[in-house]
Design a protein around this nucleic acid. Structure first.
Lengths: 225, 225
DNA sequence: GAAAGTTAAGTTCATTGAGTACACAATTTT
DNA sequence: AAAATTGTGTACTCAATGAACTTAACTTTC
């Protein structure tokens, strides 16, 4: 569980963020601070993994606060959330080694994406490994060619929604599935199921095994690795 | 022209890097340093925009050196190039606000990509602008592709009133609704209903399920739990 | 070992809803 | 009062799917 501390002077905003993060699987809100002083105290006490930091605070500039928090907890990661969009502020924050800089107002989806990215990128780089691969570092900087849907734009005649369903079916399945089985499971036609399966196969996500019997052999699809 | 300082204890390596960067349009090598002490002096004297920094140095740890360089030139960006792949070293560097961390050995292509990225991302965020857009920040983190959706205050051509009606319809509905059903219920056109529904979907408020039948599948919208 | 038999893969295209471009009317700004 | 702006609708094009079909890759039979 990734422990998050929210730092925002606006009570309502802090509450909303807290609620959202609490509902995000894998994340838990361990505390909320409304001033820089509180933030330092809470960081020391709670040792969060991640701080959601608003730049605008009553007692101290958020960027300076960031340095203080790092003194208290060197392992701390910071996600800046701010309405401040002056280039100098942003650049300074970037040089401070932040996880991301979200400019208000942003949608729940934006925040959700950043949290997911944090989990997969930064946390994949933790104690479970001793040495990092270049791929791990690239992931942090968003160069993850495979992972999310950021990649190439699906062939014409395909939808993200259906693709997800197909992936889901394969993940849920214990072993391999035929196009027909996938179709039945999703409620689509075999033709559609096949479209997506072959797409995933072309992408290198799936492996195909032939199952022989009477008649033409059946193509059975399995997720790789 | 982006001024680059190379810091590497190996003379040959430094020379190779320098040659490569010199040949990269838009970049120029202003100096080379082989020790941490030299690096500090040269940084102060030459005021480079970017430092190519090897972690392994004879007189000081590269990560500590980075802090010193920042003291001398706060505007400095750092691209770490190192054979060091201990996770702790990498994480520490990331928290130090580096531009990227390239693990040796790497190809010229890798370096070239990082330089191009630096130019388009970081330099696009310089004095020419006063305020940054979310898109600018995303570019730094390599999210230039899909990230769009800048303004939260509703897309052009939408009203809060209608938005509320749409939300209301969804809340009242027991299950999911199609754009058409929402339209009929509100007395608006399907197009308008869709506008709001897709907006809510982009916001992450709604979920879309496809209902398959003959012909193109129907998008059915449900409020997320 | 060729022909027949069997089963599923692969293709075509009608169908139906999604998505877009632009026109329009009601505002607000100049 | 002319011009820009905004929220909506009309009329269209495009896209995701499945039914019906043809083709392919095997096994079995003689």
């Amino acid at each position: 569980m990734i422990k998050v501390l929210i730092v925002d002077d606006d009570f309502m905003v802090a509450k909303v963020h807290a609620g959202f993060i609490q509902r995000t699987p894998g994340f838990t809100v361990v505390g909320v601070a409304h001033t820089g002083a509180q933030a330092v105290v809470e960081t020391e006490r709670l040792q969060p993994d991640l701080v959601l930091l608003d730049i605008h605070l009553p007692d101290i500039n958020g960027l300076d606060l960031m340095q203080r928090l790092r003194d208290v907890a060197p392992e701390l990661d910071v996600l800046v959330i701010s309405a401040a969009r002056e280039v100098e502020t942003v650049r300074k924050a970037l040089r401070g080694g932040i996880v991301h800089y979200l400019i208000k107002p942003f949608s729940q989806k934006d925040l959700h994406e950043r949290l997911e990215h944090y989990r997969s990128a930064y946390q994949g780089l933790d104690s479970s490994k001793d040495v990092a691969e270049q791929a791990d570092v690239n992931r942090v900087f968003g160069l993850d060619s495979a992972g999310a849907q950021g990649g190439r734009p699906l062939p014409k005649g395909c939808s993200v929604e259906t693709l997800k369903l197909v992936k889901g079916a394969l993940t849920a399945a214990d072993g391999d599935l035929s196009a027909n089985e996938v179709a039945v499971q999703l409620g689509t036609s075999r033709v559609s199921a096949r479209r997506y399966l072959e797409y995933l196969h072309a992408e290198g996500v799936l492996e195909v095994r032939l199952k022989y019997g009477v008649g033409r052999p059946e193509r059975r699809y399995v997720l790789k690795v």
